[in-house]
Amino acid sequence: MKLTRRDALTLGLGATAAALLPMSATAAAEDAIAVFTGGVEAGAGDITLTTPETVENGNRVPISVEAPGAMAIAVFATGNPTPEVATFNFGPMAGRRFASTRIRLTATQDVVAVAKLADGAFVRTSVMVKVINGS
């Protein structure tokens, strides 16, 4: 494909839009997180979110979360059309508070994990995942 000046400009505009977009996407994600926490501020703490740094294919991105003592852990994809991904509620027969699955990411974005602890406090962490081909 030949890259014309018009194409280059369009690409540039697209990149600018993409750079601006995460702001609004993050706002939607923060709203979704507030629904999970009931508006309680989630601080940093003992929670681990493991993802690849870069993925070729956004259709199956392996993630795992762990937060010792958590009652529940919710995962959010801040750049997806709907930020909620999954909520893991741990029961009395759960072992360590760990879960792993595969998720869809439409583009490069921050993935956020939030854990609800036994005392009602919330902790969160986030990881930037670079996606080459979005889902």
Partner: peptide, 24 residues
């Protein structure tokens, strides 16, 4: 009869959803 894990899934979970978790 007692819960180990109860997961709520949204459309952002991949096709053929798989999970790994721990039980006592």
């Amino acid at each position: 009869g007692e819960s180990v894990i109860d997961v709520r899934l949204e459309p952002s979970v991949s096709a053929n959803p798989d999970f790994e978790f721990a039980a006592t």
